[in-house]
């Protein structure tokens, strides 16, 4: 799939990365080890106050999880990206990502002690990337946590259950940008992952040029709501 003009980049575990993904281009993420995570923020590249809205994405498509061929929607009712395929039918978007307090159980860590093995939370890693784009804490929103499964119980409180072992090396997900995007993600472990040791797996990113959703695209056929969000993105791309 790697077109001559595409590229590949491996993001190690416990790191963050950001990229511009042009309308029609695809971003394929593959887990490089068990329990990999990519906690992702999305912004419209030409109006960064337009951003991923997880509640709008979930309620419009009547889902508590992210799976193909759902459309990831902005707060402005436009498709940001389509989930064109995945080895998994469940990616979490309702339990957020780690903050510094979640690192306490792994013991002390700093640059002097651990050099580039310094343990950082997903939040601090995401903020570092956001600052580099002139954004910050006020631009945070619910992340899609690729490769994470947290199942809501059917009980009165909706008790949340982290599903261990959900992701193995080679598991993947592919997104197609439906407008020009700023994509930001961190690969720190999910805070509900009970693993006692810090051994975050990395993620391989493959970017390839392509075309936006065709007329017979599965994301368009998925639900009328998905099709309307795609149509809104097309309208503003004209």
């Amino acid at each position: 799939m790697a077109d001559a003009s595409g590229y590949q980049h491996d993001v190690p575990g416990g790191a963050a990365w950001s990229l511009i993904l042009r309308r029609g281009s695809t971003l394929r993420l593959a887990a490089l080890g068990a329990d990999a995570v990519a906690s992702m923020l999305l912004y419209a590249a030409d109006d960064r106050w337009e951003r991923l809205n997880v509640p709008d994405t979930l309620k419009a498509q009547m889902s508590a999880r992210i799976h193909p061929p759902m459309v990831l929607m902005s707060d402005m009712g436009r498709a940001l990206a389509s989930v064109t395929g995945s080895s998994s039918d469940w990616h979490d978007a309702i339990t957020g990502h780690s903050v510094d307090a979640d690192l306490a159980r792994f013991g002390p860590s700093d640059y002097g002690r651990d050099r580039n093995g310094w343990r950082r939370s997903a939040r601090s890693l995401l903020l570092d990337e956001l600052y580099g784009h002139g954004l910050g804490e006020r631009d945070l929103h619910a992340t899609v946590n690729w490769f994470v499964k947290v199942r809501p119980g059917g009980d009165e409180r909706g008790t949340l259950g982290y599903v261990p072992g959900h992701t193995a090396a080679g598991d993947w997900v592919c997104l197609r940008a439906e407008q020009d995007l700023l994509v930001v993600f961190a690969t720190a472990p999910h805070p509900l992952d009970p693993a006692a040791r810090w051994r975050p797996a990395g993620v391989r990113a493959v970017v390839a040029p392509g075309d936006p959703a065709p007329a017979d695209d599965p994301s368009r056929a998925f639900r009328a709501e998905s099709a309307r969000a795609l149509a809104a993105a097309e309208r503003s791309a004209r």
Binding site: K59, A60, M73, G77
Partner: peptide, 20 residues
């Protein structure tokens, strides 16, 4: 007895997506 915090707020734009 119970309240939601995952459904977000309605907006003109999301109304178009959801209802037309």
């Amino acid at each position: 007895g119970r309240h939601d915090t995952l459904g977000g707020a309605c907006a003109k734009e999301s109304n178009v997506v959801r209802y037309g």
